[in-house]
């Protein structure tokens, strides 16, 4: 099992479970990096594998650590599979699939929190409650962080503290998470003592 373990944290921080097949007219599956393994496991658990694949639409992009398991997804034989080079190039396709989706669509998200969060945000924007979206965290734990000061989002944050990619402030990474923004919160660490920035440590890999 390569599921990403979670340490004890605060209540706004998302928690994840194992993807489970549910009856549906369309199985919309969005994954990145090692999330492909969760998708393979999901299909293997389906009571009627062929029926699930015949109604499956898989969107995939490599992970922020470079992991690319496209071949394993392509080999599943789903009705539709799409490989995007990055998350931003995956999202327009997701928007179109959502616009065409009907009642009875099942949502499965797998991989890094950045991918899961952004897909969840876009699905929620169509009116789907977040509790109806399944999410399994696999692979990298790098974070998508919003600078609370300039509102800029820095992708794939590995260290704490880090420099905001927009305004350049030194930010520490909180566990406080906004589903609406699909981001953790970053707060200036040396506001009270400008220049006194602790050494960055790799907290997210």
């Amino acid at each position: 099992m390569t599921q990403t373990p979670l340490s004890t944290t605060i209540k706004s921080r998302p928690v994840y479970a194992t993807l489970a097949p549910r009856p549906g007219r369309l199985h919309l599956i969005v994954a990145d990096g090692e999330g492909a393994e969760a998708v393979v496991d999901l299909i293997a658990r389906a009571p009627d594998r062929a029926a699930m694949l015949a109604a499956a639409h898989i969107l995939y992009t490599p992970g922020p650590n470079g992991t690319d398991q496209w071949d394993s997804l392509q080999a599943l034989g789903a009705a539709q599979v799409f490989r995007a080079p990055t998350i931003p190039t995956l999202l327009p396709r997701l928007a179109k699939v959502l616009a065409d989706a009907h009642m009875g669509t099942q949502f499965y998200l797998a991989g890094t929190e950045g991918l899961i969060g952004q897909a969840e945000r876009d699905i929620m924007a169509t009116g789907v409650p977040f509790v109806a979206i399944q999410k399994e965290h696999r692979g990298s734990t790098v974070r998508r962080v919003q600078c609370v000061h300039c509102k800029g989002i820095t992708e794939n944050v590995a260290t704490d503290p880090f420099r905001c990619s927009h305004c350049g402030l030194n930010l520490f990474v909180r566990d406080h998470y906004s589903r609406r923004l699909a981001a953790f919160q970053g707060v200036n660490i040396d506001a009270e003592d400008p220049g006194q920035v602790p050494e960055a440590v790799v907290r997210f890999q």
Binding site: S12, V148, R174, H176, S178, R180, Q185
Partner: peptide
């Protein structure tokens, strides 16, 4: 605390910190 960050959250979520 930031409204812009917390808007849309549930009771437990916005009190999480």
């Amino acid at each position: 605390w930031s409204l812009d960050f917390d808007i849309g959250m549930s009771f437990m979520e916005w009190h999480a910190p």
